[in-house]
Design a protein around this nucleic acid. Sequence first.
DNA 1: TCAGCAATAAACGTATACAATCCGGGCAAG
DNA 2: CTTGCCCGGATTGTATACGTTTATTGCTGA
Lengths: 251, 251
Amino acid sequence: MSDGATTAEGEDLDTRGNGQTRVSVPMRSVDRSVQIHDGILAAILEHRLHPGTKLGEDEIGAIYGVSRTIVRAALQSLSHEGIVVIEKNRGAFVASPSLAEAVEVFEARKLIEPTIARRAAERSTSTDVALLKRKMDDEHAALHRGDENTAIRLSGEFHLEIARMADHKTFEAFLRELVARSSLILLLYRRQKAQVCGTDHHLELANAIASCDGNLASRLMLDHLADIESGLDLVEETGTPPPLASILGGL
Amino acid sequence: MSDGATTAEGEDLDTRGNGQTRVSVPMRSVDRSVQIHDGILAAILEHRLHPGTKLGEDEIGAIYGVSRTIVRAALQSLSHEGIVVIEKNRGAFVASPSLAEAVEVFEARKLIEPTIARRAAERSTSTDVALLKRKMDDEHAALHRGDENTAIRLSGEFHLEIARMADHKTFEAFLRELVARSSLILLLYRRQKAQVCGTDHHLELANAIASCDGNLASRLMLDHLADIESGLDLVEETGTPPPLASILGGL
DNA sequence: TCAGCAATAAACGTATACAATCCGGGCAAG
DNA sequence: CTTGCCCGGATTGTATACGTTTATTGCTGA
């Protein structure tokens, strides 16, 4: 097989910055399945992969130059996060969150993220805040550059950075899943494409966290999430019988 | 030599005499990796598998009469739920939650489960309540029978049943993970073995849910979780002189 | 012309083979 | 007695082969 082209990149850029001598981190040649997982995840977060897209094992394996075994592990991982669905004997597809699912995800975020924001504010350090503001600037820059896809991903990373600051692995893992699913939900149910995620909100949040004001950070986060949710079309369309017209006539 | 032994019963083996798993191999249509996942999970929930136990692929494959491929999928699934850790080139082990992890899990439960209980109370139906009380009775019976292992599992299922009633798949999935991890935490950090999970609390909770009192259910759930947590040894043992023994020999 | 069915191709599910890695015992040097 | 090395066995990582299922295509017959 021609693996020359595929393995051209991804050599070994291991950043073994952690002074741990324990072999707890795989490091070198990070498991390929993780790479593939992250690659597909990034594509979903940047809205380059749309709900319903087929993720064939052979196809992905050919792209990354690995066997189906590895691809399967990555796809199973993604399915556990709820952003890929695997149908028996049919294959894997990018998930298409239902309306009910969308409501659930935002209910979960509105419950968890204010708590995360409070914790982050309570234990914020200067270096963390600097990192946070940097992410925010990157997002702002991407937006002004017109690169909305990257901006969407960075917006999610902003929220995840706050979770990292909160130093709560469990909440962080939950939020990682919720953010990924939110990306698909935004793609499916956002009303006006223009508004992505008020960067002003992010700025206020960052300031509240920087000043260690837990209560304010918590409230701002809740408002922020409610605002995003208000920009979605989360109304049950029970009365619409002609799905064909909207799908086929959409062009 | 290996083929003859393993495939001899590989055809239609649901005649396994183990009295442990009721539905050992009912149908082939049900992905066997899910069966294995559930089997290991049940063993962990019932404290038959202890933290640190090695879960060898060949060994499990031989037990269930399947290839390592299937076992691998099950183990990966379990690792995503945080109750199994997979170390590269070393294998899978039952997780040993750290103190910090234990604190995190109960923080998460105290945040999520009151909301779940409120939702369950708000939309409780008579059939659901009947199911809930039945689970409670089963747990009570197991306790009086002296079968503490089963009681522990049923206690977790009681909480999960409430989540099912709440009709919130996302919260239910989160709680499923938290309950499983809690089982390991109880095994590692419980102070007095006698007290499992106050069945009285469960009775009060079930009554509150039956009477559709969301506020009461929410408060009772929070108290219940705080009570369980208070029975744990979640204090940093910083004063221990032999750090070497605990750190290096900890594994 | 179109419905129904058969053959074919493509993709997935599972098992197995081979390579890579780790763990342990044994032996030799200090 | 300790320390270091080396090697054999065991276990995991990955690729590939084969069986099974699904989807599509093309054909036949009314």
